[in-house]
Design a protein around this nucleic acid. Sequence first.
DNA 1: CAGCGTATGTCAGACTACTGACATGGAGCA
DNA 2: TGCTCCATGTCAGTAGTCTGACATACGCTG
Lengths: 143, 143
Amino acid sequence: MVGDLELSLGYVLKQVHAALRTAMDEALRPLDLTVPQYACLELLGQHPGLSNSELARRAFVTRQSMNLVLRRLQERGLLTRPDESPHGRALPTQLTQDGLTTLRKASIAVRTAEKQLFSPLSQEQQRRIREDLATCVPSSVTD
Amino acid sequence: MVGDLELSLGYVLKQVHAALRTAMDEALRPLDLTVPQYACLELLGQHPGLSNSELARRAFVTRQSMNLVLRRLQERGLLTRPDESPHGRALPTQLTQDGLTTLRKASIAVRTAEKQLFSPLSQEQQRRIREDLATCVPSSVTD
DNA sequence: CAGCGTATGTCAGACTACTGACATGGAGCA
DNA sequence: TGCTCCATGTCAGTAGTCTGACATACGCTG
């Protein structure tokens, strides 16, 4: 009993997260992409050569789940993985030209949806929330 | 390409949400409760007599999913549903004494975990974030 | 050099949540 | 009254994610 659920930061966080998820789903549907798939592309766009495990950590899913995501995207020709590992067992992943093109479209769609969701807030408010919330994230994820 | 993912409010939101989810899972495990089950109990604690569909909406899952949650909790004797509907088809749900007891323990555990997660933020910062984020939530959910 | 611990990729099984569908009960209206 | 529309509860099938497990590859250390 938190008194009132609306007064719980956790509950409000969940509300906004759910709304964001729905908005992203709708924005990505025309591109035939799921949210995890988009997350994978976006991560690879900013950090080319990331391994399956690294992608999984940053997308907040397990290695096994990300593995399936990678396979689907590879079958669609959006990314490539080497057959042999250059070092250790990690297989560095790269976006293809098609992958980059799809990412650009998806990124615009998602950013538009996100922008609309947070439109009630000023840029200053958004910046403040982002910075404040970032301090709550364990640094192990940020590196 | 958002420039930098860390600068995307959506990504930070997802990070914090994932951290909260993990913290809640760990806090609830000793009580043998999942997050959706806890959400169900908490909602019933604050709004006794809520129907399956109402619970589903407020917990951000489908009616079908919430239906399974209710059954499990009913089998465990934490809540009761009437065999016949007093009005329409909606079956108003009530917590049992055991349900209330469990809810109290769970609520404390969750609140403690939540408190720790947001400990880097002052009360004033938490209040501000909560109010700001609340303005982004479609009012249809809040009613 | 051999052994241990750790990290990665992958396979298999179980579980959870979702989509689609159907029947039932009420409210609103011609 | 009879009809439509909507909300609810529930059943079945599907897809996604997780846990558990195993083999492999590297770094460290005695």
